[in-house]
Design a protein around this nucleic acid. Structure first.
Lengths: 165, 165
DNA sequence: TATTGTTATACTCTATAACTATA
DNA sequence: TATAGTTATAGAGTATAACAATA
């Protein structure tokens, strides 16, 4: 196993043996785990995202839904849910929120009377046009310290993690 | 801006123009965003974690709390919450769950009658001893396709994302 | 005055099971 | 029979505001 943690940056210079009532905590094996760092990184990304899209209150998940609906106009709730890996019952409330803000429209499907054909409303189109540059700027800010090779590698390695490899 | 997405792996060979009612969705800019891939990777890690620690029902967050409590015996709920970035009111229910399963003990603090000195119970110690090899195996499985250099780089890049860089 | 744990409250995200309408 | 959307329900996780006990 990789040994990137043998000198944990979270422990003090003494290796963390003096854990006084007020110092940083000893984190043991945690900083060496990709799962742990992934979680930390995602929290930081989430918070930066929120700040970047302000004053709009949009989550990364909602941004993703808006992009998918724009790029796949007319798709159903079930298909959308399957694409992002959430249950269709969960998708109901998610679309409720987007529809309630005027961003998404539930149009009747022309081919299947059981399902809706989702599309962005005019305000959703405008919002997304406004959001995309902000999201790109947020990405740029988060990656500011990385060169092109590192960015490419990060995307590649994350993709391999997600891909089950 | 980095251009790692110009040929999206999520679009078909035609670039995604034929999005028939049953094909994969067009994902546009999403796969090129670190935030998006991070989220996908974390979902995959989470599911793999759940499977790896079965039959125990422990989340990655709970595993982290158990490690921190073991390595910092006697710490208070507020300190623990500050360390992982959650509110002390949220920590109440989190500790309730760990205590209810016999993994964590709320002992009275010897120095401050307002607070508890948290420590693992005997079952918590045993559980953690059992969990750690499983978590390491899960990490190993997720990183199976990566060599030592790639693993080191992944940890480093994730750390830089979380560190605000 | 400030801090610790707690409760009340609220909201999001997630799921399963069962229902209706439609395929 | 199977699928799409919905509802009821449940649980985890998150927060803010207020409270009592203690520092």
């Amino acid at each position: 196993m990789s040994d990137a943690t043998s000198s944990s940056p979270d422990a003090g210079p003494d290796g963390g043996k003096t854990r006084g009532r007020r110092g940083a905590l000893r984190r043991s094996l945690l900083p060496g785990l990709v799962g742990y760092r992934l979680r930390k990184a995602q929290i930081a990304m989430f918070q930066s995202f929120q700040a970047a899209v302000a004053p709009h209150e949009v989550t990364p998940g909602q941004f993703g839904l808006l992009v998918l609906i724009r790029e796949n106009t007319g798709l159903s709730q079930s298909r959308l849910g399957a694409a992002v890996g959430i249950d269709r019952s969960t998708m109901v409330a998610a679309i409720d929120r987007l529809e309630g803000r005027g961003w998404v429209v539930r149009a009747p499907s022309p081919t299947d009377r059981r399902s809706y054909a989702l599309r962005l409303g005019p305000e959703g189109e405008r919002l997304l046009d406004e959001l995309i540059p902000k999201v790109r700027a947020h990405e740029e800010a988060m990656l500011a310290g990385m060169d092109a090779g590192e960015r490419r590698l990060l995307l590649d390695l994350l993709g391999r993690l997600a891909g089950g490899g």
